[in-house]
Design a protein around this nucleic acid. Structure first.
Lengths: 131, 131
DNA sequence: TATCAACCTACTATGTCAATATATTTTTGG
DNA sequence: CCAAAAATATATTGACATAGTAGGTTGATA
């Protein structure tokens, strides 16, 4: 299930996209507009910066801004970054240790299929499709 | 993410399907074959009984058995029952309280779309497809 | 009726989620 | 230059979920 981290990350990105005209949007404004704790958003936004999706500018008049054009983001990369993974089962997560049952596992192909289905679904959705 | 509950439930159902010839399969055998703690399986199997997918027969020579033919089960109903829900986001779970943002939520249609995609995917998979 | 197996209740460690609190660094407008 | 503003970093917390374990009771059947 997609948690608040992924959902809030998406809302932050949408907010930034809607205010892409301004060069910088301070987190305080986003938090107020979206009705989400600024402190909690700091954690989420940090991941977005680290993942290279947005840039943070400190100081007076600073804030965050997108590094690409709004229509050049897809939903998949945003929630995958915020959630860490969007794998259907633990053994398909990026950092998963190899499952000893993998070779004989009758269900693994189905999980892979489901994963591919979801991944391509979210990748096909552009950020601007949501605005 | 689908947890051990859902995954183990599926393996129990597959095991029962493979041994559908026997009238009853004791949980002890399933636990040994699948390499899963019998005690933990009891919890999972209880839900499957309560949900009407299998039947438990007590006493000597007892065990569990399917109530339908193996090819009449789909994967979706099994993991949905074991997991409680397979909703993509909390607000789309069966027992979710109404979200006040629902009317204005820009992302809700996408989550609903994703939910429908997953649900129909898992419903289209029959238990016997996995054997 | 003795046995086997389902069924029931309670408990526990570990981890994740969803934040909050406080302190520090960095940047830039005046 | 300096001070306000904003990002960034670290630590902690309560609540809940996950993944089991332990032990006892009921009930069917060979």
């Amino acid at each position: 299930m997609i948690t608040t981290k992924g959902r809030y990350a998406l809302r932050v990105m949408m907010d930034l996209a809607e205010h892409a005209a301004e060069s910088c949007v301070p987190l305080k404004e986003i938090a107020e507009r979206q009705g989400i704790s600024k402190k909690y958003l700091e954690i989420i936004v940090k991941d977005l910066v680290k993942g290279g999706l947005i840039k943070g500018v400190g100081g007076k008049g600073g804030g965050y801004r997108l590094v690409r054009k709004p229509n050049e983001y897809n939903v998949g990369e945003i929630i995958e970054l915020a959630e860490g993974t969007l794998a259907t089962v633990a053994c398909l997560a990026q950092d998963a240790e190899a499952c000893p049952r993998a070779a004989a596992c009758k269900t693994l192909p189905m999980w892979k299929e489901a994963d591919e289905l979801m991944r391509s679904f979210y990748r096909s959705k552009k950020l601007t499709d949501l605005l």
